[in-house]
Every structure is written in structure tokens, then in C-alpha cells.
Design a protein around this nucleic acid. Structure first.
Length: 815
RNA sequence: GGGCGAUUAGCUCAGUUGGCUAGAGCGUCUCGUUUACACCGAGGAUGUCGGGGGUUCGAGUCCCUCAUCGCCCACCA
């Protein structure tokens, strides 16, 4: 570990340069692709990403970020680009000399990945059922593990300085062990139960889902008014009349007062059902009478429980009709609806139909319409568990950036219902439960057991069956912070972690649950700060996506403009919690900035080539004082801004320091009177400040410094050292003004000369045209169009002359 | 129905606890082939900070209200 080497082999088109020899001449323009991969290798070879790399003071507070695990099977997409802020935070902390860990990992992403793989299978005319659960799982596992390097190498090419050797995967044994352990504890504590409840069922993926995985979309359907004998009801789902168990009206509704307690009749099947009164029913909707179908509607299910009504199921897991008259059995919901409506119409039971816009629940990923069904699922009682979470957030033990998400998180936590954690998805962590199949009445119906051995011990061979359900992906990823740190032996040093930075749309799904699991399992919040970002969109605010054609592969962008340019575009002008717009123009602007950085360095290096050590410069001229003041101010403000998650402002301050102050003012001045030590010092500071944002170009330059043999990534964050004199600095400002006005005068005189020359030319032209028009024979004999042309030319020239004279006046006035 | 955010130059956006004579980048216009950079330099133009009202010595910033756009949550027979 003591042996460090800094020689980087930079690959250029025609030559290979060993930078350890400090190449004498740098190319005029910075070409990122010549350096980036070599720089990343340099960091890796020097173990720069390891937590204690560059740590000068072990007593400094450790800094850690757990990377939100991207889908192992995916590729870099717009959402991942914002991970740049995690890298900025990590690099900053590392340079501050804190033990720094950015722990990377990937997610098996249950339904996402299963969906992708099923589509691959579909191309071979196969479904997962052709393979069976075990074989399917193995195939997906092999597929995912084969793909995993894609995302990792994309992240690395973004320059992400995570500790890649520690990469974790949500299905790693040491992770699942922790997940099992949590499940068992929760179960023992009575916080997990198995129940037969109405859930969001997706007939396409054939699994239950939590409420939060369901989206509501507006759709136009028809509202049917049906004759139920004693009254008329309105429904959008006539196919479910076979599962009706009651008609409900509002208890205060006078229209139906006398009917409550009596019967209504389901048309087509002529079954009598009671009329009941329930507050849930609204007066104004439809007829004010509601058919109650506990088996297939969330609210009806609740009404059913309140009134002790039976539950009838007429739709199966695939979304087809069952337990219905023969005519409809086996039909899909849509087919059945049409057929039932036709039959109702024929029977004279369809009173009227009208269009209605209402919202329909669909599954986030499959987009299938959710069919509420009553099934056996595993649930977690979150109300109790959320209480300490709410307290912790209220006490700011977890701080939100931006602040407004604190309120949003609290609101959600206070209203969360029991969480359905079981999925009938095959790609995921199997719930560690075994069921009794024997009739032995001394044995429990099921046991929670991590492996089969325990089940054999308890039930005896052949007397049990394993649970086939898997965990909701968020059940395992909710435990990601401590599960990963335990697996890498970093828990003691780095838990609780410093910052969780992630997309704002998974605040509920993920962030709040990590806090919940963290507090339950470790007694501590899993992170002290939460930083949330929005979507990355194009300049019009449209979500970037391949199908919309506004998404270019980031790797193509970085190849053309450089990774640093993309990183800067993602960190400047984008504020926490809000959508970030990027465009090619913006990226190009930062490419130019990187090149500016390169050339500033080139200039300074050319003026300091004989410098072997970097000394604290003496401030000689007023310009030195002015520049020192600018440096000091930048150090203070950039540090403060990064500490407070104001990356945009930190980046902008650095940008302005380098371009406006150093390049445009100080260097321009230094061409008259040079202070090489000060120039070298400026470069040193600027590179350090810029490094978290633009790590590649700054490191590439750092490798060229004749006075330094180190890697910038683990160099120290700058402190204020210089003591400039404010009065001297003011003098320089006055000097600048003088220089500028002199320059302006010079420019004006050039301009004036030019204008006067033009005026003279115009005047001559004018004379010529006037002479032509004064010629009687020309006016009388030439074609009319030609004469007209000369006249308009005359007018135009007169106008132009006036404009020029006005311009001259303006310059004179401004002086 | 409940909540949150946005509205600032032609475009994209900053603007922290009220102190602003309101900024940046891009674009635009004028000038410039100065040996760090044309992926450049110098300079200019462009704003009743969405409308209305209020608090204050002072409001882009705080309060009320209206409008438009976007997002989240709940619900919709």
C-alpha cells in the first residue's frame, strides 16, 4: 500500500505518452477520450476508492453513501445520470480527508427483470410456465449475472468513485441472510401475518402488488344503469353482477329509506340480495344505489366486512370468468362485459348507459389493469413500525434536502396501511416459510425457516411444502443500507450513513421504508440526510426516453463532449427536488469550459515549467491581492455550498473563478507582469475546487504539474491560506476599469474609422445616383423600371447613410 | 377532494436568513486572425421578477388572493 505510482499511459491517436515523464507539450485542445479511461485506471491502481485512501486524520468523521442499486440487468439511463451528485459528495468528503465510502450495488429488481426476461422468452414462443419456477429462476439468475458488468462499466465511465471491489447484489447470500433474519424477527414480533384479503391483482404478471406500485389513469368507459327489481343501480362493471351480495344506499337517503332491509334482485340470475345502508354510498353518484361486490372491489370489500356479507369470486387469476353461468364462464372480463350487457339489454334490464370518465388502476410496470381479488398474502403491520420513523423525522434525525419532502414523507407515513409484501413473481427472494402438508395436529400450519433442513426437522420429510411467493423488491432493498454494510464489514465504521441521494419518486417506496427497517433492525436511522432529485428531461421538459427519440446514449455524449462536460451539465443549473433539463447545447457549453480549464493550465504550465516545488506565493501586485481575495472567497463559498447540497452554486462559483477571474482578468494582467508562484498557486487551488465536478480533466492536468507527484483525487481540499490586502485588491479593480475604458476607446476609434470610411463611400454612391437621375435624357428614355430602381436605390442609400451617422453619434455620446 | 412545486431576459435556469442598482449560460448584435484557448477575446441590447392586494424604512424573496402549468396522494359505483 505504500508503493504508489502515478505514471499514466495516455492514449492518443498517433502516440502513447507516459505522463510520468511530464510531456512537454500539451495539445491545444483537451480531447477527453484520450485521457478518461487511463485516468480511471490510475485511480483504481492507487486504490483511491477505498475508504481509507488518502485519509490523513483517522479521527475525522467518516462519510458514507450507499448507492441506490440500479437494476443489475439494465443499462445506464437518464435516471442514473443524477448519481453524479453522489460522486461529487464522495469526492469532496474524500478530499477533506474523511474516511469515505461510496458503496455500490445492483438490484435484482423483481418484476422489472422478470418482465424483461419473459419478453425474451416470448420471442422463443415460451412462457415462464413452460420452464417452471426453479428453472426460470436459474435462467434469469444466469442472465442477470452475465449482464451486471454493463451497468458497472457505464457507471465507471461516468467517473463514479465508488468502492467497486465491494459491489453487492440484492440476491447475494449475505444480503438474503439479513433479509431472512429481519423477516423472522418481524414475524416473531407479530408484525408480519398471513391473511386472506383483497389485494391489487395483476392478471398479466399474475401477482399481487402493494398500493404504491399501482398507478391510476383516467379512462373513458360506460356507466350502465341496471334494473335490480326494487331499485336501479349504476355500475361500470356489469360483468361482476354475479358476485353481488347486497345493494347499499346511504342511510340518510330518503328515496330508499323504505327499501333498506328488503330485497333487490340481480338480473339475469334472479338472485335476491339484501338492501343495506352504508355511509360510503354517495347520494349524487348514479342513482345513489350501489351494488356491493366484496370479491372484486376494494370499497365493497370494506362494506362487506362492516355488514358481515359473503365474498363471491367470479374472476380468476388470469382475469377470466369463473363461478358464473355457463354462457360466460372462461370469458375474459372484457368479453364477459359485452356479453352481459347484451343479455341485460335483451332482458330489458338495461335502463340506460352513459359515458363516464373515471380512473382505472394499472400496474406500474406491466400496465395491466388491476383486478382486485381476494387472495392469501403476507402483510406487514407498518403503523406501529412507522411511529418511531415519524418521530425521527420530526426531530430532524433525518434531514431532507430540499426541506419540503419532510412534510411529504411524514404525511405518507401517517397514512400508510398494512403493506402486502408477497409477490407471485418468480424472480426474487423466496419468502422463508414452509407449510404443513401432513394432518399432524400438534404441528403449526407453517414455520418460518431459512432452509429446508429446519422444515425436515420440524415436520419430518415429505410433510411440508415450501412457500413459492417471493418478497416485494422493496422489502429487501428497504434493508439495503445495513444489509450491505454488514456484508462488507463496514457497518461499525460507516453506519448510520451520511447521505441517501435518490430520485424523489421513490421517496415513499424506498426512502421511508429504509428508515423504518433501519430503526427496527439497528435502532438507528440508516442515514442522516436525504437528498432528492427530480427527473432528467430534455430542454422542453419531456422525460428522456428512447421511444420518444430524445434520449441519446450518455456514452455517445461523453465520447463526443467528454464525461466532465456531461457531469457539469448535470450539476450546474439543476436544483434539488426539481426536474433537471439538459441539452446538447448545455453540454457543449461545459465542454468549452473544460477546454478553457485545459488552456488556462497550459498557459500557467508554460510560465512555470522550471518550478519544482509549490510555495505559498508572495502577493506582489495589486492584481495578486485581488486574485488571492477571489480564491479565498471561492474556497469558502464552494465548501459551504457543497456541504449544504448546493451543487449548482458551488459549480457555478468555480466556473466563474476559473473563467471570469483567473482567465479573463488575472492571466490577462499577468501577461504584463508575471508572478509565477501565484499563477501556480491559482492553478493548484482551481484544480482542487473543480475536481469533484470535473474529475477527469482536473486529474489529467494534475498529472502534468512539474511540482507535484500525486493523484488529485486523494489530495486535500483547499483551505484559505493567503492574506490579501483588501485595499490593494480595490486598486486592481480601479486599474481594470481604466484598462477596460482605454481598451474601449481604442475599439471605438477603430469602429469610428470604419464607420467614417463607410459614410464616405455611401456619400459618393449617393452623388452618383443623384447625377444619374439629374440626367434628363436618362429619365425620359430609359425603361421605367430602371428609373424606378435608381430612385429606390437612392432612398435606400439615404437611409443607410442616416443609420451610419446615428451609429457615429452613439459612439461619440458614449465617450 | 387534499397536498406540493413552478411562473424572473428570446430560450434554459440561479437568486440561501427580506438589503438587488435583479444575475448566469445559450442565443442575438458590433468589433477583433493579440504566440493559453475561435471549444477564443472585447463590448452592447434585452426584464413593471405571472396578475392584484397587504406587511415593512426596504419585497423577486414574507402574508393573502386570483390565474396558468406540472407533480404527488386519496377517491370515483
Amino acid at each position: 500500500m505504500d508503493v504508489k505510482f502515478y505514471g499514466v499511459q495516455f492514449i492518443s491517436d498517433n502516440a502513447t505518452i507516459f505522463i510520468s515523464m511530464k510531456s512537454a507539450e500539451l495539445p491545444k485542445n483537451y480531447n477527453p477520450s484520450d485521457y478518461e479511461s487511463a485516468i480511471f485506471d490510475l485511480w483504481q491502481k492507487n486504490s483511491a476508492f477505498e475508504p481509507n485512501s488518502g485519509v490523513k486524520n483517522k479521527n475525522k468523521k467518516p462519510f458514507s453513501i450507499i448507492m441506490p442499486p440500479p437494476n443489475a440487468n439494465g443499462s445506464l439511463h437518464a435516471g442514473h445520470l443524477m448519481y453524479v451528485v453522489e460522486d461529487i459528495a464522495t469526492r469532496f468528503a474524500r478530499m477533506q480527508g474523511r474516511p469515505t465510502l461510496w458503496l455500490p450495488g445492483t438490484d435484482h429488481a423483481g418484476i422489472e427483470t422478470q418482465f424483461v426476461y419473459e419478453q425474451l422468452l416470448a420471442k422463443k414462443n415460451l412462457t415462464r410456465h413452460d420452464l417452471g419456477q426453479d428453472k426460470f429462476y436459474k435462467e434469469v439468475d444466469a442472465f442477470v449475472r452475465g449482464q451486471q458488468h454493463n451497468i458497472v462499466s457505464s457507471f465507471q465511465s461516468m467517473g463514479f468513485s465508488a468502492d467497486w471491489d465491494k459491489l453487492k447484489f440484492t440476491l447475494d447470500d449475505d444480503i438474503t441472510e439479513t433479509v431472512f433474519d429481519t423477516f423472522k424477527r418481524l414475524h416473531d414480533d407479530g408484525l408480519i401475518y398471513r391473511g386472506n384479503r383483497i389485494v391489487n391483482w395483476d392478471p398479466v404478471t399474475q401477482s399481487a402488488y402493494a398500493d404504491i406500485e399501482v398507478t391510476h389513469i383516467e379512462r373513458e368507459d360506460e356507466l350502465y344503469y341496471l334494473d335490480y327489481g326494487t331499485l336501479v343501480i349504476a355500475t361500470t362493471r356489469p360483468e361482476t353482477i354475479f358476485a353481488d351480495v347486497a345493494i347499499a344506499v346511504n342511510p340518510a337517503d330518503d328515496r330508499y329509506k323504505d327499501l333498506v332491509g328488503g330485497l333487490a334482485t340481480i338480473p339475469l340470475v334472479d338472485r335476491g340480495i339484501p338492501v343495506i345502508a352504508d355511509d360510503h354510498v354517495e347520494f349524487d353518484f348514479g342513482t345513489g344505489a350501489l351494488k356491493v361486490t366484496p370479491g372484486h372491489d376494494r370499497n365493497d370489500y370494506e362494506i362487506g366486512l362492516r355488514h358481515d356479507l359473503p365474498q363471491i369470486t367470479v374472476i380468476d387469476f388470469a382475469g377470466n370468468m369463473i363461478n358464473v353461468p355457463e354462457d360466460y364462464a372462461g370469458l375474459s372480463v372484457e368479453e364477459a362485459r359485452k356479453k352481459v350487457v347484451t343479455a341485460l339489454e335483451a332482458a330489458g334490464k338495461l335502463i340506460k348507459r352513459e359515458p363516464i370518465v373515471h380512473s382505472v388502476a394499472i400496474q406500474d410496470r406491466s400496465k395491466a389493469v388491476i383486478e382486485p381479488l381476494i387472495t392469501e398474502q403476507w402483510f406487514m403491520r407498518v403503523t406501529e413500525l412507522n411511529k418511531p420513523v415519524i418521530e425521527a423525522i420530526e426531530r430532524d434525525e433525518v434531514k431532507f434536502y430540499p426541506k419540503r419532502f419532510k412534510k411529504i414523507a411524514l404525511e405518507w407515513l401517517k397514512n400508510e396501511h398494512d403493506w402486502c409484501i408477497s409477490r407471485q413473481i418468480w424472480w426474487g427472494i423466496r419468502i422463508p416459510v414452509f407449510y404443513k402438508t401432513s394432518t399432524d395436529s400438534t404441528k403449526k400450519d407453517y414455520i418460518v425457516a431459512v432452509d429446508e433442513k429446519e422444515a425436515i426437522e420440524y415436520y419430518g420429510a415429505g410433510n411440508y411444502r415450501a412457500e413459492t411467493d417471493t418478497f416485494d423488491t422493496w422489502f429487501s432493498s428497504g434493508q439495503w443500507p445495513y444489509a450491505t454494510l454488514l456484508a462488507t464489514d463496514d457497518f461499525d465504521q460507516f453506519y448510520p450513513t451520511s447521505t441517501m441521494a435518490t430520485a424523489r419518486d421513490i421517496l415513499h417506496k424506498w426512502v421511508t421504508r429504509m428508515i423504518m427497517f433501519g430503526i427496527y433492525k439497528t435502532g438507528k436511522v440508516p442515514f442522516e440526510n436525504v437528498y432528492l432529485w427530480g427527473m432528467v428531461t430534455d430542454e422542453k421538459g419531456q422525460k428522456l426516453s428512447k421511444s420518444k427519440g430524445n434520449y441519446e446514449d450518455p456514452m455517445k455524449i461523453t465520447a463526443e463532449y467528454g464525461t466532465d462536460a456531461l457531469r457539469l451539465a448535470l450539476s450546474i443549473g439543476i436544483t434539488p427536488g426539481n426536474d433537471g433539463k439538459i441539452s446538447q447545447e448545455k453540454i457543449k457549453g461545459y465542454r468549452n469550459f473544460c477546454n478553457k480549464t485545459w488552456n488556462v493550465s497550459r498557459y500557467i504550465l508554460a510560465n512555470t515549467s522550471d518550478m519544482k516545488t509549490l510555495k505559498t506565493p508572495e502577493l506582489l501586485s495589486s492584481a495578486d491581492h485581488w486574485m488571492a481575495l477571489a480564491l479565498n472567497e471561492a474556497i469558502v463559498s464552494v465548501t459551504k455550498d457543497i456541504e449544504n447540497y448546493r451543487y449548482s452554486e458551488a459549480g457555478q462559483a468555480t466556473y466563474s473563478l476559473l473563467w471570469d477571474k483567473l482567465a479573463d482578468q488575472y492571466i490577462e494582467y499577468s501577461k504584463q507582469s508575471t508572478n509565477p508562484e501565484m499563477l501556480a498557486y491559482c492553478l493548484d487551488i482551481v484544480l482542487r475546487l473543480l475536481h469533484p465536478f470535473a474529475p477527469f480533466v482536473t486529474e489529467a492536468i494534475w498529472q502534468q504539474l512539474p511540482w507535484k507527484e500525486s493523484i488529485l483525487i486523494t489530495e486535500e481540499w483547499p483551505n484559505v491560506i493567503l492574506k490579501p490586502d483588501v485595499a490593494a485588491s480595490k486598486n486592481f479593480e480601479l486599474e481594470i476599469i481604466e484598462v477596460l475604458s482605454a481598451r474601449q476607446k481604442q475599439q471605438d476609434s477603430v469602429q469610428l474609422a470604419k464607420l467614417n470610411k463607410e459614410i464616405k463611400a455611401k456619400k459618393n454612391l449617393l452623388l452618383l445616383i443623384e447625377a444619374k437621375l439629374a440626367n434628363q435624357s436618362f429619365v425620359e428614355n430609359a425603361p421605367a423600371s430602371l428609373v424606378e430602381g435608381e430612385r429606390s436605390k437612392l432612398k435606400q442609400t439615404q437611409n443607410e447613410l442616416t443609420d451610419l451617422e446615428v451609429a457615429v453619434e452613439n459612439i461619440k455620446v458614449s465617450e
